[in-house]
């Protein structure tokens, strides 16, 4: 496609102009680089009158923590949020794209979009990409049919249940959910349960960690608590201060450039006086 290399505001969807080149590089032994993953523990539970969603905040690239406080609770609509695990870029963009579509749908329907519509749109999109968009999602929200949580695997299959867990820490989290879940809990009990489940993932799964974020959705609206809990902030205190004495580094050359004032607004006023004669 010749137009792909030019800026075209009308173009949409994925671009494949580098695809053949990259395949050729693979043949030469140059493999694609590591991607940022959210190893992740995400859980969701239904309580009496709403849902609670929870997630850890660690993003990893290989065995290195790339981000200690990333947000895995994504906005979909006023009554609906989505938890994302998998390739960081895929979860972020899939949910952002869907948030846009849901807003447009809500405007044209002139009512709250039901959770199941969002789920159907997401799973149809993920299925179309045959698992290549590696986003493992949990959608949670409250609509006219009541509270609802659904998990969606990267290939597009979905699961309905009163309590769900996803990501690499889901095994640890699910053990807590299986032991302590009860139907018709209060909001406080549900938040506590989700917190305990995420904490199990944070402490037992190496690719989950840092803080715990929580989102509570009822018919009255959604509340995102970020961070809900920080993991051991007290152990991070260093023994030394490592500020270097000025002049430590040998400078070879130095140049200073002034940054112009950023003019926020300009106003030109006409005066009533007669122009001066020249």
């Amino acid at each position: 496609m010749a137009t792909a290399t030019f800026f075209d505001p009308e173009s949409s969807g994925f671009q494949f102009d580098n695809y053949a080149r990259n395949q050729q590089l693979v043949k030469q032994g140059i493999k694609p680089p590591k991607l940022m993953k959210t190893g992740t523990t995400t859980t969701a539970v239904i309580f009496k009158g709403g849902v609670v969603l929870g997630a850890d905040t660690r993003a990893t690239g290989g065995n290195i923590v790339m981000n200690k406080n990333c947000s895995k609770i994504h906005y979909l609509a006023k009554n609906m949020y989505c938890l994302g695990a998998g390739t960081a870029a895929d979860t972020e963009y899939t949910t952002r794209l869907m948030a846009g579509k849901l807003e447009l749908l809500a405007m044209s329907m002139r009512r709250i979009v039901p959770v199941k519509s969002a789920v159907r749109m997401l799973k149809q999109m993920l299925f179309r990409y045959q698992g290549h968009v590696s986003a493992a999602l949990i959608v949670g929200g409250v609509d006219m049919l009541g509270p609802k949580i659904v998990s969606i695997a990267p290939h597009g299959s979905s699961d309905n249940a009163p309590y769900l867990a996803m990501g690499s820490g889901s095994i640890a989290a699910m053990s807590v959910l299986e032991t302590n879940f009860r139907p018709d809990m209060t909001a406080e009990e549900a938040v506590k349960l989700v917190r305990d489940a995420i904490n199990a993932g944070v402490t037992n799964d190496l690719f989950s960690g840092s803080n715990i974020d929580i989102c509570v959705i009822t018919i009255d609206g959604a509340q995102v608590i970020r961070p809900y809990e920080q993991n051991q902030p007290e152990v991070l205190k260093k023994a030394n201060n490592y500020t270097f004495p000025r002049g430590t580094t040998t400078v070879l050359s130095q140049g200073v450039r002034k940054v112009d004032y950023h003019i926020v607004s300009t106003e030109i006023r006409k005066t009533d006086e007669e122009p001066m004669e020249t």
Binding site: I64, V235, N240
Partner: peptide, 17 residues
């Protein structure tokens, strides 16, 4: 002791193992 303690704090922050 202080240096190695700080070195391990930094390693634990960023290395999952």
């Amino acid at each position: 002791v202080k240096l190695l303690k700080d070195a391990f704090l930094a390693a634990a922050e960023r290395d999952v193992y």
